[in-house]
Simulated assay, not measured.
Amino acid sequence: MRVLGLLSGTSHDGIDVVVVDFAEHDGALRGTVLHEDSVPYAPDLRARLVAALPPAQTTLAEVCELDTLIGQAFADVAASAAASVGGVDAVCTHGQTVYHWVEGDHARGTLQIGQPAWIAEAVGAPVVSDVRIRDITAGGHGAPLVSFLDELLLRGRGEVAAALNLGGIANMTVVADGRVSAYDIGPANALVDAVVVDRGLNDKGYDEDAAIARAGTIDEALLADLLAEPYYALSAPKSTGKEHFHLDYVRAHVAEREISDADLVRTLTELTVRTVAQDVAAAGIRFLAVSGGGCHNPVILDGLRSALPGVDVVLADELGASVDSKEAILFALIGWCTMHGVAAIVPGGTGARAPRILGTITPGEGPLRMPEPVDAVTSLTLTTAG
Results as ranks from 00 to 15, higher is better:
L223V: 03
A262F: 01
L319R: 14
E220T: 14
T267G: 01
A224G: 11
S239G: 05
D203I: 07
I285D: 09
N189Y: 11
V192K: 06
E220K: 13
I285Q: 08
L234Y: 09
R257P: 03
G320N: 09
L268D: 02
Q278F: 06
A194D: 07
Q278E: 15
S291K: 11
Y231E: 05
G293N: 10
V280R: 04
G205N: 12
A233H: 08
A321G: 13
L315A: 14
L268K: 01
Y232L: 15
E208M: 10
G186V: 12
P230D: 03
A277G: 04
L315S: 15
H296Q: 15
G186K: 11
V280T: 00
A283I: 06
L319H: 11
T275D: 08
R199W: 14
L264P: 10
K204A: 15
G205F: 13
I300S: 00
G200V: 12
E208P: 00
L271E: 10
V276C: 05
S260T: 10
N202D: 14
N189Q: 09
E220F: 05
D219R: 01
T275V: 11
E229S: 08
V192A: 02
H253S: 11
K204M: 12
R305D: 06
D207H: 11
V290L: 08
R286Y: 02
L247P: 01
E258A: 13
N202H: 09
D209F: 11
D209N: 15
V280K: 06
N297L: 10
R286F: 04
A236I: 00
D207R: 12
L268F: 06
P187D: 06
A233T: 13
S260A: 13
I218P: 01
L201R: 13
